[in-house]
Design a protein around this nucleic acid. Structure first.
Lengths: 175, 175
DNA sequence: CACAGTTAGTTGATTTTGCACCCAACTGGC
DNA sequence: GCCAGTTGGGTGCAAAATCAACTAACTGTG
């Protein structure tokens, strides 16, 4: 599934431990995917099982051994096939929209509270993305890889901004 | 989880069979949630189990019996608690963004193909939403319920529109 | 009159996800 | 000196989601 491809993608950039992968999911990749620790380690094991990655145990003086995972040629092929195999469609699943859809049960103030709370969350997330983008801005246009990576962050920023606009419109016109 | 609440929400509007619920997920609700048939029937069984819904078997002359599910008072309470319990946050999971993130592996033309394919999909989905909206436009502002329901569709439309703009920007500036 | 589609619901197997734990050793701050 | 946090890895379990098939009778179209 998707998680396996994403992990292969990250491994294609650089060999990594499960721990480091988790950090990427929490920071550099958090605007379009997240994953549980346990899930990452299990998927890594599967990748090794299928021959898409290999493990090299690297001892460290102070810290636990690193289980460094390296992508194999077979792994790169699977990754390339995923990329070339057509654009994936998005899940289109938003629990909050479900809350709005059925929010008429609530009092007017409670609806406003709901929307304002979402607004706060969205603003918070947007600010996070904006601060992430500051670090890459200028150098991004240079090579294709950096450009595309930055572009996904821009996508998230646009989506959050659109969400804010929508929230404000709803708050303004709520009967 | 979320699916159970959404089903309760739909049942709160009107008693329904699993089959009818599935139709709602495929049409009126498809812009923010979808669900497998099997999942719907199993969740319905759980709701009945927990006392949040009751079943009434309605015989029909030609077609199979309808297992009409009615929301109970307990069910309405659970629904209300979900709505009042704070804004849910969105999953932030988009496989396509993963493809873009790692697309530098591909040739330039293949990247463009990927983006254009997505553009076509997005346009298609947007057109679907726009045609859905035509049927509700004017009467929407009237009561709160219709307004909120229409608002979630507007949200989806804004998101798709923002996606289109982003795709065009990426296609234009791709190095 | 055959065949596709609709109405209605169900089962089984498998995958994916999430949550809560657990281990061990180190590092930094009060 | 203690306690929280980091580095690194892992297990077990239950819930949720997906895929595929199967039943059965009707309706509409060519």
């Amino acid at each position: 599934m998707v998680l396996a491809r994403l992990i292969l993608g990250l491994l294609s950039l650089s060999p990594m431990t499960g721990y480091e992968l988790k950090k990427h999911f929490d920071s550099s990749i958090n605007h379009f995917w997240n994953a549980d620790k346990a899930q990452i380690y299990r998927t890594l094991a599967q990748l090794v099982d299928k021959g898409y990655a290999t493990v090299r145990t690297v001892a460290q003086s102070n810290y636990p051994d690193r289980q460094e995972h390296h992508i194999t040629e077979a792994g790169r092929e699977v990754l390339a096939q995923w990329l070339a195999g057509g654009a994936a469609q998005s899940p289109e699943r938003d629990p909050f929209m479900g809350q709005v859809f059925f929010a008429a049960e609530l009092e007017r103030e409670d609806i406003e509270r709901l929307l304002l709370q979402r607004r706060k969350n969205t603003q918070y997330v947007l600010d996070d993305y904006l601060s992430q983008r500051e670090g890459i801005d200028m150098r991004a246009a240079a090579d294709r890889r950096s450009f595309l990576m930055a572009a996904t962050l821009d996508h998230a920023i646009r989506q959050q901004a659109a969400e804010l606009e929508w929230l404000d419109a709803v708050l303004e016109h709520l009967p």
